[in-house]
Amino acid sequence: MMEVPSTKKISWEVSDGIGFLSFIDAPENRMDTLFFQELQMLTTDTIPKSKIAAIIISGNGRHFSSGANLDDLFHEIKNEKSGSDILLSNMHSFQYLCDLNIPVIVAIKGVCLGSALELAMHCHFRLCAEDVILGLPEAGFGLIPGLGGIPKLQQFAGKAKALELILKGNTFNAVDALKWNIVDAVYPKKTLMDAAIQLAKRSMNNYRKYRKKDYLIINNTLD
């Protein structure tokens, strides 16, 4: 296995051709300045050098992530010449994952709010546990989802639902997320990671050859 610099927020392990990107700052797995620095290092250096055919993103502990650390973000925006530069560079990490030609799967359990949901929406397959709490609460803080959350939600759920969810800023559950096309499949918490690994194996050598939903039917034989 290749040498990986030690990290505090995100771990990266490769096994059987699958890259496991895990948030390791449980219980909240907050996305603070260090988190985004580590994510940038992963997406610009570590992942491009890794021999992988699929990626699974998940959070250690009970929750996926409660999103960005607002104090950190405000601090950076205040001190940058152009506050939006720091956001753009964070955004590039999300876009890198979105643009990859290998399946990028996110396995969400527990809480997944704000920037965490924005990251999840940049993944190709979004699997979640029955107990998830999802939401974009930014409007409640006088802000908007600034990392691609608005166009992504609009793409998946349509204009009216996106507008409603972003302005209300309320949380929603797995059943609604599935109905609104925000997640692709819901599993019991105990089998979520297995489902993600099975999906990775099923899609890693034939990605984008089939329709998305074909990969999600467990017993579908795909070549």
Binding site: F74, M91, I144, G146, L147, I150, P151
Partner: peptide
């Protein structure tokens, strides 16, 4: 979006 966010954050 990032510009809109920064403007709101600064405000």
């Amino acid at each position: 979006d990032t510009q809109l966010f920064s403007t709101l954050a600064l405000k």
